[in-house]
Nucleic acid binder design. Structure first.
Lengths: 217, 217
DNA sequence: TTATATTTTTAGATTTGTCTAAATTTATAT
DNA sequence: ATATAAATTTAGACAAATCTAAAAATATAA
């Protein structure tokens, strides 16, 4: 088992290395978790001793296989807890981060497996991010909810994650069809809604609910 | 906010002072939370400085009003989490203690209020112990051990005063559940055992040991 | 009531995770 | 290419929570 501090470093390295394939710098970690760079250096040595990261002085770090699955398991817990808080306790999706940050450190695989089942084995958390499997592996999916997409990027609609008549009829009205091109113009933090263009037509506004259920690549 | 360690001391003092009205001894706390007596002394000074306990060297401690409600809130969280684990995630009532011991330290009143609502505002946890209200106050209810009950009277089982796995498993075998009706048919002076009917089924015999640990109203 | 045992506290040390300030290494710019 | 800036590490310190061993206070027993 890892300490609370160790888990936070692993998680930070995990998130920071997501975009770049390269190594993560000491300062980046320090800024991310709000801790002095000197402290980070100390902890990196400790994590390297435990074979959780590859670390060379002044050269930055990367997770080892062990470190990656350890981090993946923490992220899994975080995202399952967020899903629980939103879908069962009716928290807003913008209110659950700090709480999940505490809950993710609860030690029990059994608990999370039961929670997973209780929630109906969700694939995405309330922000549209993938939930890693019980071994900490991030499912390699090239598709994702439009909700977690980047502004000013064009995607293709490959599916929807909801079959209700009301939803599908709405898509018809909006001329949103499987296979169409969706360009994300703007995202509003306030209510999760976004401005999009369908096949280069005039921009329309869709709610968070809709964006969450459109699966794009 | 109190540290994890502080919360554990408060909880321990709370539980230990439950029976006796007198003060709690340093050694009793040390034994309860498995920590050296010298360490307990240090922490008692700290808690006394914060006005959470009344403490005089060599004389033992008692919770102040502030300390009592602080402890009550922790106990509330513990018992709400146990209720959640058993009633929503289908854990056995004998499996949830250690997990609740972790979860009770999550910092968020909002979370517990929502959980309380989600669970339907339960009055008792899975072991039949009262759940304190949101201000940490323990409801005062008139309950007693079945052992001190009257013959030919029907009671309702509201709790058990022992948490050992052996005991809880035995109750499962005997189909004795929290909330069930217990009619006292006969009491044997000789060995303290008694003849009872559970929910009007055929009478069974239980030992004094068992009768002592069943709390009814 | 006085010696012995038990309980509690004091004193000093350790571990973990953090800090600041100074030194060192690497990167950047002229 | 070398001076300057930025990033990183080292060194030394600190707080929280713990420990062991020894001293002091309290309780018990002959």
């Amino acid at each position: 088992m890892y300490s609370l501090a160790e888990e936070n470093y692993l998680k930070s390295i995990f998130h920071l290395s997501k975009n770049e394939t390269a190594t993560v710098s000491t300062n980046a970690i320090a800024a991310d978790i709000n801790i002095a760079a000197a402290t980070v250096t100390d902890m990196l040595k400790k994590l390297a001793d435990k074979k959780l990261i590859k670390y060379q002085k002044y050269k930055g770090v990367a997770l080892t296989k062990t470190g990656l699955t350890a981090a993946g398991k923490i992220v899994r817990k975080h995202r399952l807890w967020e899903t629980f808080l939103v879908s069962k306790l009716n928290f807003g999706w913008d209110e659950v981060h700090d709480l999940a940050e505490q809950l993710e450190h609860i030690k029990s695989d059994e608990l999370m497996d039961r929670m997973d089942k209780f929630l109906g084995f969700p694939k995405y958390d309330p922000h549209g991010d993938c939930i890693p499997d019980k071994n900490g592996n991030m499912p390699t999916i090239t598709t994702k909810p439009l909700l977690s997409s980047d502004t000013n990027t064009t995607y293709q609609l490959v599916g929807v994650s909801q079959q209700s008549t009301a939803f599908l009829q709405m898509l018809d009205k909006l001329k949103i069809k499987i296979g169409c091109k969706i360009k994300v113009m703007d995202k509003h933090i306030f209510d999760g809604s976004m401005q999009i263009k369908i096949d280069n037509q005039t921009a329309i506004n869709i709610s968070e609910m809709v964006a969450k259920n459109l699966i794009v690549k």
